[in-house]
Design a protein around this nucleic acid. Structure first.
Lengths: 343, 343
DNA sequence: TTAAAAAAAGCAAGCGTTTGCATTTTTGAT
DNA sequence: ATCAAAAATGCAAACGCTTGCTTTTTTTAA
């Protein structure tokens, strides 16, 4: 029948078409009104927004993504959901992304569940993303490569990019660690020790290296080095016992993360039956919110994590928009902060 | 020219069409092979997967969503990104969702940035989601309603649903809190106190109510009640001083969350110059991973958070798939756990 | 064998946008 | 008033998949 056309969808959400018809403009104009408002005259724009509002219209993302080939989605790859540091990370990424009209999603690297053919949801999601922020610290180069395969923008966060094609934003771990050695030396520490998590992680390696080298320089010998395998409170806690039972226990501990520092501190305190020897110095590394959850005014090497994350995110989004402005390496300095007050 | 058709896209990702052509089947079959494998014969299926694999094909989500009107996305609404509890939450939701081939995204409720017409990205995202898990504990009923507007499935997590149309999964806060009063009474506590965060939050209210009522029952008087406004470590820490300076300071504290308990404990410890009086009892409420980051073996009312979250997620996804099986209320019991050992 | 039922595969019409290009309207300068 | 340039709008072809329905193939039962 001729009038079939006038049948309106009774259910479902309003589409741009609905708005267009109601206002009396073309679908195109409505579309532009939301995607490139500056291309439509103020008069029409106002009318369109008014109607859109009344009809409860808002653009269908799927359709938009399909048509424009841009998802305005960036993925944050981390290797452990549960690491408290990653919470901050995700939060800052989200915040910055939101300001640039992007949205961030979390991608876990652990799941090597490629069994199900190439159909895994992770895989598809990866394909949808406009760019990738890779923060996994002990991620194989191979994995990183795989990310860039679809000529997707990627920015490495937290370690110098190995591949010259990728930008990276990272902190000066060696430098920061060296400062700790200086600090120990200045404070008359006799037997410095290093406690790290996963020895494979580049951050651990860098922090160890920077520390060990500077210690040798100051002391002429190597510090005690322990790597407990993971960034884990309990393991650090237990490490305290082992170290205290050494014939000559250390009197200065440099922990590769704040979580380790807190764990170790708690462990030391638990053990310490003769407090008259004075508490050993414990120094951490990081800027997690963790410090806000404990009573220790931890001395710690810090770096401007929020700045770094926002810079990385921002840079990523920039390179997505424009035609790749050549990869950059953006280092951030570390500073040793004594007993940072809570909050 | 007649042979134009054979021109292949030189750039970009392989599409289902490409795979179909290569294998020699129809586009439809390829599509089904990924969406409903059971509908295609094993022979063809294998061939298709092989080719898909070789070509690096994986379905374009945007297209799929557009065509099927299902995003396989669920949103988790929380009111504070940074709350450590919400980290767990998101993690469990993600895990469960992933098992059901869904993906979870985080939606923040704080941002009342509707200024920008109806075009905000949050708004659009909300529209894309197949269902919503609402965990914001002090969320207005109005906001919740707005969520359900597009006949979207929603499950309330953490408090009894006010609206009979929504399912909810929650813990028995009153009951748990009452157990604390029992515990205090059994342990000869003389002056019980309650320390809560945001008084508006339903969880706070319920825990307070359950505790106060049972205390009255046992003691014949009301406990001291303090609400510090937010679930914040530092504020709890400081509250310790205020309470200790009372003419008759409490000797048993029930804190509405674990974070508060830890903060208060630290604060008490900091203050406590005459330890011979014995340490007061501090009891928390919750099951966050927080307890794994501190040395306290906190006595605390716990509930099976992982179970709860997975149940909620699962239930949500179920109701998305099928035609709504009538809203349910799924309560979980709380139990008081004495000095839970660290992990 | 053969017919009916079940399984597998294909057709084609969407899904709701974006966007290059063409067309119309407005503006501004003569 | 006149015309070119700029601004605003419209047209229609994608974008890559899903799905109701139809057609073909295979299986099952008689």
């Amino acid at each position: 029948m001729a009038h079939e056309k006038s049948l309106r969808k009774t259910h479902g959400v309003a589409t741009a078409q609905d708005v267009a018809k109601d206002v009396g403009v073309s679908l195109t104009t409505v579309s532009r009104c939301f995607a490139n408002p500056e291309l439509v005259s103020k008069r029409t724009r106002d009318k369109i927004f008014a109607v859109a509002n009344r009809l409860g219209y808002s653009p269908n993302i799927a359709a938009r993504v399909l048509a424009s080939r841009r998802s305005n989605l960036i993925g944050l790859m981390v290797d452990d959901f549960k690491d408290p540091d990653n919470l901050d990370l995700f939060h800052f990424v989200s915040a910055e992304a939101q300001q640039r009209n992007f949205h961030a999603i979390l991608l876990n690297t652990n799941h090597e569940r490629s069994a199900i053919g190439s159909g895994s949801i992770e895989n598809s999601l990866l394909q949808q993303v406009d760019g990738l922020l890779v923060s996994a610290s002990y991620l194989s180069q191979e994995t990183i490569d795989r990310c860039a395969i679809q000529d997707k923008r990627v920015v490495i966060l937290g370690r110098k990019s190995g591949d010259p094609a990728f930008s990276s934003v990272y902190s000066d771990n060696e430098g920061g660690a060296a400062q700790v050695a200086d600090y120990f030396h200045a404070n008359k520490i006799q037997r410095p020790a290093f406690v790290g998590g996963n020895a494979q992680a580049t951050v651990t390696a860098e922090r160890r290296a920077g520390f060990v080298q500077r210690v040798e320089q100051h002391y002429g010998f190597q510090p005690i080095v322990r790597e407990i395998g993971a960034n884990d409170y309990t393991m650090a806690f237990n490490m305290a016992e082992e170290l205290l039972c050494l014939p000559k226990p250390p009197d200065g501990y440099f922990c590769a993360t704040e979580l380790l520092a807190v764990g170790l501190l708690d462990g030391l305190q638990e053990m310490n039956s003769n407090p008259e020897r004075g508490t050993p110095l414990v120094v951490g590394f990081g800027s997690s919110t963790l410090s806000r959850l404990t009573r220790y005014k931890l001395t710690s090497v810090t770096y401007p994590i929020e700045d770094m994350v926002r810079t990385a995110t921002s840079h990523l989004i920039d390179t997505i928009g424009s035609g790749m402005t050549g990869p950059k390496r953006i280092p951030f300095p570390c500073v040793l902060t004594e007993g940072a007050p809570i909050d």
